[in-house]
């Protein structure tokens, strides 16, 4: 499922980045790579953007990016 479908507070692991373009590059450089563990910290009112904690820092990603990340929930 996509990152944007995960709920607030859930932990997950990234499975794939679903784009080939500029967004893909930006995401990869910021550390969103297959196998990366993350946690959803906040979801904005209206559902977007989403604050994600990964690799030791917290980053906000917009809905467009959240739709490009395939992830699975992890306990």
């Amino acid at each position: 499922m996509l990152l944007k479908n995960l709920k607030n507070g859930q932990r997950g692991r990234i499975r794939a980045i679903l784009s080939k373009g500029l967004h893909c590059r930006r995401l990869c450089e910021m550390g969103f790579l297959p196998g990366t563990a993350f946690r959803i910290r906040h979801v904005a009112p209206l559902g977007s953007p989403i604050a994600v904690e990964l690799r030791g820092y917290e980053v906000i990603i917009g809905s467009r990016d959240a739709e490009l990340i395939e992830a699975e929930a992890v306990e």
């Binding site: 967004h23 980053v59 906000i60 917009g62 990016d65």
Partner: peptide
């Protein structure tokens, strides 16, 4: 399009 939000908190 507006810069996709990718910021640190």
């Amino acid at each position: 399009s507006a810069s996709p939000l990718l910021l640190e908190l």
